[in-house]
């Protein structure tokens, strides 16, 4: 079977991989690059567990063919923290107990980052609509929404 060579930037690193034409970007990230943070909850773009930011836009990586990533800049959950510090969203999720089983957490963090990149001071309602494409079955969303609002405050007013 013929495989396509794809070159792109993931979490600031130049990477390349081989992929079959019909393969999803999600599978390429997980299987070819070993970035397991993005999860497959549905494979149909309904749950958001595979969320990534590609060229500045929030995307479900299960709905993107891997070859489409050629030349793109991609951020996954693994790219949020710096060497010595978690991203405020990650820290607020931990302190706010915004995760239970944790399977949806990488997707929520990415979707929340995409929101705060666009809108650093969202209302509760704006947070709820921005995260409506991400399913969580454990938390009832309460602590997730609170943690995103708290992270927004911390990002706007660094200590």
């Amino acid at each position: 079977m013929s495989r396509t060579h794809v070159t792109c930037e993931v979490n600031g690193d130049a990477v390349d991989f081989l992929t079959e034409d019909g393969e999803s970007l999600l599978n390429a990230l997980r299987d070819e690059l070993g970035l397991i943070g993005a999860k497959e909850g549905c494979g149909t773009g309904d749950c958001g567990a595979c969320s990534i930011i590609m060229n500045g836009r929030l995307q479900c990586s299960c709905l993107i063919f891997a070859p489409e990533a050629g030349g793109a800049a991609i951020t996954t959950c693994e790219g949020l923290a710096s060497a010595d510090e978690l991203h405020p969203l990650q820290q607020c999720f931990l302190e706010g107990a915004a995760l239970q089983c944790g399977i949806c957490t990488p997707g929520f963090l990415i979707a929340a980052k995409a929101l705060l990149d666009e809108n650093p001071d969202p209302t509760e309602t704006e947070v709820r609509y921005a995260l409506a494409g991400n399913l969580c079955r454990c938390t009832g969303y309460d602590k997730i929404v609170r943690s995103v609002l708290e992270a927004a405050v911390q990002i706007r007013t660094p200590a």
């Binding site: 943070g37 993005a38 959950c77 978690l86 990650q90 931990l94 963090l109």
Partner: peptide, 11 residues
């Protein structure tokens, strides 16, 4: 928690 917010936890 850290593994789970960093995308490292192994399911």
């Amino acid at each position: 928690g850290l593994d789970k917010v960093a995308g490292k936890a192994r399911y």
